[in-house]
Structures are given as C-alpha cells and as structure tokens.
Design a protein around this nucleic acid. Structure first.
Lengths: 280, 280
DNA sequence: GGTCCATATCGAACAGTGTTCCGTATCGAA
DNA sequence: TTCGATACGGAACACTGTTCGATATGGACC
C-alpha cells in the first residue's frame, strides 16, 4: 500500500538476509487460464525451497487464511504467533518454518488483502471518475480490514497482487493523458493520500480494557470535543471557538469524497499545466 | 497530528477511566507573559493531583525530555519503559506514577513535538502560499523526529500545543476566505495528507539486525525496484515496464511540493465553487 | 526392503515487553 | 512528633517474537 521507493532499501535487505521467506517460486502450478505467474523479484529468492513436498502440511496459504480470519475477528493486537498457531491446531514454532518471521507473515497478509481491490478497465473518457472509483474501492478494503493500513506501514508491496493493482491503476492514469512522470507520481501520491485518510479512520483501536458499552458513541465523542473547543477563551482562540460546531459533523464518506475530489481536480490541473509547458 | 474526531471516543475513554494521567491542571505556574494556560479538557481531570509536592522528584517534563532524546537517538523501538527509566537513573515502576502508562507518555511526547511546529501569522493576500508553508514546516518536524507520525497514529492530539497549532492554521484558512466548514475540513484533510506522505517517508525503520553499510542506498534500492519492474512480461504489464524508469527518481522534496500544490490548488477551487453555490 | 536425507513439527527455553503489587522511604502540614 | 499523601523501585506476572534441538514423516535411491 505504501510505495515510497527509497524504502525498497530496507525491505530488500530484509529479504537478502533471509529474515523473510516470501512468495516462493510458484509452489503451486499457475492457473493456466488466469493471470501469468510473476517472476519473483531478484531479492526474494533466498529460500529457494525445492518443490518437493510431502503429505499435506499446513500450507502457507492456509496460514495467511487463518491469520486474516483472526485479524478480522479480533484485531491487530490479537495476532500473535501463538494465537495463530492454536487457531491452526499446531505449535507456534511450526509457523516459522513456513513464513520465516512475523514480519514475513505480515508481508504475505498485505499482498493477500491488496488482492481484494478491484480496478476497472481504463476508459479514457472518464478517467477522473475512474480514479475516484479506484480510491473509493481501496478505501472500502481498508475499512473492511481496519488493521490493513497499520500493517502496510513500512512495507513496500511488490507482491503479485500489488504489481497487478499498480499496472491497472497506471493504465487509467495514462488513459487520462497524464505524462509519464505525472502518472507515476499521481499514483504514488494518490495512495499515500488514501492511506493518510483511512489511517485516521481506522487508526484507533479500542483500548485494552474497554468493554463495549462504556465507550461514548462517535457522535457523543465529537460532541465532547466540540464542547471543549467552545469552552476555550475566545480572546486567544477565536477561530476554534467560532468553528467548534463544525467539528461535530462526522460523515466520513462525504469527507473522503471531498478529499479525493480535491486531489483529482488538482492532479488534472497540474497535469494539464505540465503538458502545456512541454508542448510550448 | 491525527484529527479524526470520531476517534476522540477512545481517547476520552482512556482518560475517563484513568489509564492515563495526562496534562495535569497546570502544575507549573503559567508563564505570565506567554500564551494563556489552557483549561484542561473535561475528560482529562481524573488524577487531579494537588500541587503539593516534595523535594525535586523526576518531573513529568523531565521524563518527556529524556524520552524524546532517547527516541531521537535510538528510534521508536528503543523506547521501553525500562530503558527510559535507566536513562533517568531510576526504576521503571517509578515512571508509572508520573505518566500513568506508556500510552500516556506517548500522548505527552506527541504534544511536545507538535509544539515544534511554528505557524506564521495569517496574511490574507498569500493564504495559499502560507498553507504550503505550514505543510512544509509540519513535514520538517516529522522528518526531524522520524518516529513522530507513527506515534501519532490512533491519537487525537488535544493538548495545549495541538490546540494552539489548530487555531493558527485555521486563522490562515479563514483569512483565505474559506467558508467555515471548508476551513475545518481543509485543515483536517491537509493534516491527513501530510501524514500520509511523511508516514511513507519515515515509516521504514531499520530492521533489527541491520548494521550501517550493508543496506543499499535509497538510490540503489530504487534502481533494484525499477530493474525488477522492467523485467516483467511486457504483454501483461505494459505500463509498469514502460514507466519503470520513473520509479528510480526519488526527490522527496519535489514530490511533497507536488502533492501540496495539488492539494492547495484543489482546495482553493473547491472552496470557490462552494462559495459560488451559496452566493447564488 | 532398507537406507538416507530433506521436509516438517513442536516443546522448551530465552530475552524482552508493559504493567501491577507492595513495601518503603521522604517530606509538608497538623 | 505524628500522620498521611507523595514518591520511589525491586520483584513478579503474563505476554511477546524467536531460536534450539530433538523427533517424526515420507519420497527417492540402492
């Protein structure tokens, strides 16, 4: 989800030194009709486990399945190697043989979830609306798995699903006529913008001891904050006091639409002035 | 740093139930010439520790000082209660008397660092440039303390410094003529946009075992990623293959300027059309 | 069939974490 | 001097990710 490229640095190191055992060289026969098997990135070839296998061991896929189920049910803090192992009816140490480390597991989970984002085929006539649609879908997945954005922090997703998603998004931006650099940067910045917003939306986990019911509703909480702002000394905080009422409204869908509208509009104009500059 | 208001919920709960002992009722005499002492938010008055004190105990400020120093030096993972206590020449358990919990400590640290962001006085004639300036300064602080954005996740900063910063930023937006709702939302969305970007920049901590020198430079890392993208099957990934070169360039300052330019431009236009709609 | 070895499993232990308990100092006020 | 709130900190608890080493398991080769 996060595409800061200088960051590839650390991740590549992580792979090179074998902390992680990630997408191994197509353990399963690639679906002949489906999308092509991606070549493994050059920094991911450490384990190189031969395809010889036995019985039906707990597959890596099964581990990721169970992990996602556990995360969806109990949240990020509940995902410990021991809890996950118990879920699979095995021991914690066994998991390490398959995923190398918890970090490696999180990488796999991230790519799995990225795979849930569906991108429409590019249509040059409505590229701006399509970009907004991409943003909405990406946010929807982030909300369906509230821990997702937090997992993605510090990870550079180069898994098969991430690559496919990038390709399709890029196609839409290029169909819109964005020059190459603008398309790439637009994509990267769109992602970080979405993440900034959804991180805010989903960043708040329930505190450890919270029973359901003793927490104020989002409505009440916003009301409290608003009331506090209104109580500030107006001489020193005129704007906060005056605008306190605006802090009670919490329609996140509308806020997101506003943000993405601003972004896409600004991007289109930046692109237009960029092409105009090179054309002259 | 993160202002999702529904999130006040959890934080307020945290305070109400006393997990945290935060900014206590102006323990130190407020600087008479300086900014006024803020009234404590209603959900922060739990401990209500009387001002009677003895000797010169390790003050809460001193703890935050040491914590920030430790974080700046060794990074987020190095901040453990035991390590911090040792830094202060005391025991870990003692810290809990002052800050309630590690979470409470992080709240205090967050507000401390927010205090480093300086906001210029509002000038109606150049509000767009001023918003960009605010963004740049906020990012600068985030880069100076690379752990900052990660700390801010899930926290709703309502400390004195955060309030002051909001007031001044809001002043700039209102000076620009933004209608009330637009000013508030513009501020909130600006923050999440900045955070999304800087989280990307700073989200990658060095992996535990990394000695300096065995990690490829950002340049090399980007090169690796670009080379990988170029090696993909062009039939299925035409855009990634064609644009692979664009992924090598990593001038984060320029990327940030582009993002903020897009945002401010889009915001100005959204505001203009909003006022036009209400005026008609 | 017997041997071999990579594949796979997992109990036990290690070092580390945040946090709580409880006993004990220390001092200001009565 | 007494008393009690303030402040401190050693020890323990439950938990974490991870490693080690012993032990199965089963396919390939002789």
């Amino acid at each position: 989800m996060f595409y800061h490229w200088a960051a590839v640095l650390v991740n590549s190191v992580r792979y090179w030194y074998g902390v992680l055992v990630s997408t191994e060289t197509q353990d399963h026969a690639p679906d002949p009709a489906g999308p092509p098997a991606l070549p493994p990135p050059p920094w991911q070839r450490l384990p190189e486990r031969s395809s010889r296998r036995r019985r039906d061991p707990i597959s890596r896929d099964a581990i990721v399945d169970a992990a996602v189920a556990l995360l969806d049910r109990d949240g990020l803090d509940a995902l410990s190697m021991r809890a996950l192992a118990e879920q699979l009816g095995t021991g914690a140490a066994s998991l390490y043989w398959h995923v190398g480390s918890k970090d490696g597991l999180l990488d796999l989970i991230l790519d799995r979830l990225i795979g849930e984002v569906q991108i429409p085929d590019a249509d040059p006539d409505r590229w701006q609306e399509q970009v907004r649609e991409v943003a909405r879908r990406q946010r929807a997945v982030c909300l369906r798995h509230p821990y997702l954005v937090r997992i993605s922090i510090g990870r550079v997703p180069m898994g098969p699903n991430a690559i496919r998603l990038s390709e399709r998004t890029l196609a839409i931006l290029r169909a819109g006529g964005l020059p190459p650099k603008m398309a790439v940067q637009g994509h990267l910045l769109l992602i970080s913008t979405i993440n900034g917003f959804t991180l805010d939306e989903t960043g708040v986990g329930d505190p450890p001891g919270a029973r359901p019911g003793d927490a104020p509703s989002p409505q009440e909480a916003a009301e409290m904050a608003s009331a506090y702002l209104r109580s500030l000394p107006p001489a020193h905080f005129p704007n906060l006091v005056e605008l306190a009422a605006e802090y009670t409204l919490v329609d996140d869908d509308a806020r997101f639409d506003l943000l993405i509208g601003i972004f896409v509009d600004g991007l289109a104009r930046a692109a237009a002035s960029a092409t105009a500059a090179t054309a002259s």
